[in-house]
Write a protein that binds this DNA or RNA. Structure first.
Lengths: 191, 191
DNA sequence: TGTACATCAGTGAACGCGCGTTCACTGATGTAC
DNA sequence: TGTACATCAGTGAACGCGCGTTCACTGATGTAC
C-alpha cells in the first residue's frame, strides 16, 4: 500500500515528532525505535523507508527538539524580554512537564559525553544564548551575561528535578529566577 | 578457588571502584558490566557472588562516586574555602578529565529522569551544598547562596563540555568562576 | 596439630531476552503509452 | 481518458547481536573433630 508523496512527508514528520518526544523522555541511550514508530501510528518494519538507521532517527529528533526549544525562547523574549523567558523556563510547570521541554536539560550530560552530538548541541545552545543576549540589549557583555543565565537555568532545572516536586525544589527555582534576573542587569558583576 | 574473606572484601572494593568509573564515563544506561569486571581483573561469571544484579552494582558505584565527590569538595573547602572549591570545580582540568569526576554533572539528566536515583542524588547534592554553606560562614542565606553556586557550577560544567575544549569553553568556565564567587559574597542579591 | 569435609570465590561456557535490522510480500500511487 | 506496469510506503515475521544472567565445575579456605 504505497502512499502519496504528501502523505509520506506527513508520516516522516510524525515519526520525527515522536522521536523528539521519546529522546527527551528517555534519553538517547534508552530511547526505543519501536515505541517511536507505534507513537507515530506505524509498525516498526516501515522505518527504513524513512531513515538509514536508529542513529539518524534520534539525531533528527534531537534537531527538532532543539529547533522547538529555540523557537519557544525566541517567542518568549519577543513577548516579555529576558525576564519573561527566565520565568517561563524556571517554572514549576516546566520542571514537571511529562516530556521535558528543554533538550539541553533533559540530555545535557549525555550530549556532553559525545563530541559529535555535543558540538551539535553547542550550536543550538549558542543560538539560544544569542537570543537572550539580544534580549539583554546586546551591550558589551550581553553575551557573557546571557551565557551565565543559560548555565544557571540548566543547572537549576537539573537540580530542581533531582529534588523532586516539593518545597525545596520550588525554592531552587525561585532562587534561580532571582539570580538569573540579577545577572541580566547590565555590568553588575562581570568584567 | 575460594578466596579468603579479606581478599573477597578487596575484590568487591575493586569492583565498586571500577563501577564508579564506568558509570561516570558512560552513563547509567550504557555502563557495561563485563567491562567493570575486567577492569577489576575478573571474569564476568563471578559477579553474582558480590551483587544481586546489574542495578545494584551501578547504584553502589554511583554511591561511591558521590562519596568521593563529597570528600573532594569538603577537603577543598577546608583548605581554601569556597573560592578554592569553585576554582577547582570550574577548572579546565576538571572539564577535560577522562573519567568525569562529578557524578552530578556526568549523570545529571539521567538521574533526574529516575525518581529513586534522583532522590539519592539529591541527598548527595544536599550534603555538598551544606559543605559549601558552611564554607560561606553559615549566615542566614548561606544555604541559598550555596545552592545557587552549585547550580551554576553544574550548569556551567555541562555547557563547557558541550562547547568542547577551546576558547569559548574556557571562557564559560572563567565567567562561571567569577559569577560563582560573586554569589558567594554575602547578601549581594538574594533576599 | 593434623586430617576430612563443607564452603564458596572465581572461571568460562551457555542461555535467553530485547531490540535494531532485514526481507518477502501487499496493494495503492503514479507514470508511460 | 483509459489501461498496463513499475514503484515504493507500510506490514509482520524472522534474524542476529549484545549483554545480563545462569550453571556446572574448580580448588583454595576455613571449620569440625
Amino acid at each position: 500500500m504505497k502512499k502519496s508523496k504528501a502523505e509520506t512527508g506527513q508520516t516522516k514528520l510524525r515519526i520525527v515528532a515522536a522521536a523528539a518526544d521519546e529522546v527527551r523522555r528517555k534519553g538517547l541511550a534508552e530511547a526505543n525505535m519501536a515505541e517511536v514508530m507505534s507513537a507515530a501510528g506505524l509498525t516498526h518494519g516501515g522505518f527504513y523507508r524513512h531513515f538509514a538507521n536508529r542513529e539518524h532517527l534520534f539525531a533528527e529528533g534531537l534537531r527538532q527538539a532543539m529547533a522547538t526549544s529555540q523557537k519557544v525562547m525566541a517567542d518568549r523574549v519577543a513577548v516579555g524580554g529576558v525576564p519573561h523567558s527566565v520565568k517561563g523556563y524556571l517554572s514549576v510547570a516546566h520542571r514537571d512537564e511529562a516530556v521535558p521541554r528543554c533538550p539541553y536539560a533533559a540530555l545535557g550530560s549525555e550530549l556532553a559525553r559525545d563530541p559529535n552530538l555535543g558540538a551539535q548541541a553547542w550550536a543550538g545552545v549558542s543560538a539560544q544564548i544569542d537570543t537572550l543576549a539580544q534580549g539583554l540589549g546586546g551591550g558589551d557583555d550581553a553575551r557573557d551575561r546571557a551565557t551565565m543565565i543559560f548555565a544557571m537555568m540548566m543547572g537549576a532545572m537539573t537540580l530542581a528535578r533531582l529534588a523532586g516536586d516539593g518545597g525545596p525544589s520550588d525554592r531552587i527555582l525561585e532562587l534561580a529566577r532571582q539570580e538569573s534576573l540579577a545577572i541580566a542587569q547590565p555590568s553588575q558583576r562581570l568584567t
